Computed example of a mutant assay.
Amino acid sequence: MNQDSSRKRLAEARRQARVLTSGVFGMRGDAELCKIVEEAATAMRFPYAAVSIVDRSRLWLAVAYGFDPREFLRPDSFCDAAIQLPGFAPLCVSDAWREPRFKFAPAVVEMDVRAYYAAPMVTDDGFALGTLCVLDQKPRTIDETALALLTRLATDATAVIDRESNAMAHAEYAIGELVTRIRFAVADEDEELATLLDEELRQLEAKMKPDWEPKAQ
């Protein structure tokens, strides 16, 4: 593996660890996030909206408007493409049927989605947790005002998720998952990945000690 590939792989592993330690996987159906997706859908007049978290191999929907929260496979997905755009720019797909790269996107295959607009949810330390997205089963275009609203609401959603208290409330799940991933990395003799994940685990465990002081909210 060349240096560039190794760097990207470790950067993605660090992003995944940041997703885990945010505590978001304990937020299915969160009331504040529900209000945000409802505002996005109604203000932009889209039938569907969601907070989509990009995990290792899946998209995990914390909340959804217009359909039940679910999981999708990550490969070929809109949200995976969205978090990889330079500068975390919004992803705008007016008609997925005219976009060959999204021909087999899970939302297209499973929900007949054609229009998709998303703003990445980016933490203050620069990690994309996923997206706030709106979807429709017919082609759609939106103006700059609507796109600005979506971007602002994505920032609001990130703030709801990325709270120290939330991370601590759901730390046990993150610790268990990090331990599992460390074991797999060790079994694969991937020392770099095992070291990175171990550092993330130690930092999270340190935050759980009684004498640790959380950052100001």
Rank of each mutant, 00 (worst) to 15 (best):
D156K: 15
R56E: 14
A49L: 02
V179A: 10
T21D: 05
A17M: 07
E71G: 05
L197D: 00
A62Y: 03
V108L: 11
A216S: 13
G23C: 12
T42Q: 15
A154P: 09
A206M: 10
F88Q: 01
Y65D: 02
A62I: 14
A49T: 13
M44L: 15
A146W: 04
Y116M: 06
A167D: 03
P100F: 09
R140F: 04
N166P: 09
W60L: 14
E200N: 03
R7T: 13
L150C: 02
D162Y: 10
N166L: 08
F102M: 10
R74N: 02
I142P: 01
R18T: 14
K207N: 12
Y116R: 00
D112I: 03
S165I: 11
I182S: 01
F46P: 13
D156S: 13
W212C: 11
A40F: 12
R56I: 13
D136F: 03
A31G: 01
G130C: 07
V19D: 00
R45F: 04
P210N: 08
A171Q: 10
L61I: 05
L153G: 10
M1G: 11
Q217H: 10
K138V: 14
G23M: 13
D124C: 10
V54S: 02
A17S: 12
A11W: 00
L204A: 04
A157N: 15
R14L: 12
A82H: 00
A148W: 00
A105F: 09
D80G: 04
D4N: 15
I53Y: 06
P106A: 03
D80Q: 11
E172F: 01
G176C: 09
I161K: 08
D55E: 13
A17G: 07
A159L: 14
D198F: 09
I161C: 08
P75S: 12
E199N: 05
T123V: 07
P69C: 08
L201W: 05
V51T: 13
V108S: 00
V179N: 09
G87F: 06
V160C: 02
V93S: 03
F104T: 15
L196G: 05
F25A: 02
T145Y: 05
D76F: 08
Q137A: 05
R15H: 08
F184Q: 15
L132G: 04
H170C: 08
M121D: 07
D80K: 02
P214C: 05
T158W: 06
L33F: 11
V109R: 04
R45H: 06
L196W: 01
D198G: 02
E38G: 10
L147H: 07
E191R: 14
M168R: 15
Y173L: 15
A49F: 01
A82Q: 04
A11I: 07
A50D: 02
